[in-house]
Design a binder for these strands. Sequence first.
DNA 1: ACTATTGTATTATCTACTTAATACACCAAT
DNA 2: ATTGGTGTATTAAGTAGATAATACAATAGT
Lengths: 123, 123
Amino acid sequence: MGWKFSNDKPIFAQIIDQVELMIISGQYVLGDRLLSVRDMATEAGVNPNTMQKALTELEKKGLLLTNRTNGKFITDDQELVQQIRAEKAVKYIAQLLKNMHSLGYGKKEIQEIFNKQMEELGA
Amino acid sequence: MGWKFSNDKPIFAQIIDQVELMIISGQYVLGDRLLSVRDMATEAGVNPNTMQKALTELEKKGLLLTNRTNGKFITDDQELVQQIRAEKAVKYIAQLLKNMHSLGYGKKEIQEIFNKQMEELGA
DNA sequence: ACTATTGTATTATCTACTTAATACACCAAT
DNA sequence: ATTGGTGTATTAAGTAGATAATACAATAGT
């Protein structure tokens, strides 16, 4: 897991985003055990408290489970994971359309620019 | 100008974004004078120092000009404005494609979801 | 000349985020 | 039972963003 942080957002929030992404994109195996809070903190180069704070949030979302003295585990609820993934996709696109609209672009223009950039994509 | 701020980003950064958007989307008339720093701060419900900090950044970008004792003005460089607007659109879409990719969506799926949400758009 | 309004600068304080160091509670493995 | 590795909690200190109050510099308008 390669950790990277920017300075335009609290680190704990970025950890939440990144771990969530790892889970819903299938880069984590559902049901697997995470590294310990301490080890993840070391790996990410942040304080254990900060890691703890982020993971607690993900537990509230239902994406992580805690086994008191054994560690934290990824949920094995595949439905939940897929639902969150689909929601995120819809949200991303809705955000794009909102952004383009706020720039003053109309439906037709958006379609054009989108298609153009899609074509420039490999595969 | 209706000011709204979230708590997931510094306020001065959000002011930069919002004012820039007003300019490049044509909601400000190029060459027009802004309200005074103090008045804009009051209007936005922030401290004058915070507003000052944001406007200084926009001046560095070339979108604002300062007339020492008369106030700050929107640039009248229409080319610059249009260039920034186009850049932003490209950036937004690139970001979307990156986001969708990180969720594990392929080109075809992205196209499908995008089209679906475009159709749900009025006009 | 004077005044009011402009941008700008300075200093202090407050809050949220982060780090740091430490301690505690729990339990599987030995 | 003891040990070692879990998660969790607490307290203190550092840093950046934001607020607050104030002062200064420049000039347009009178």
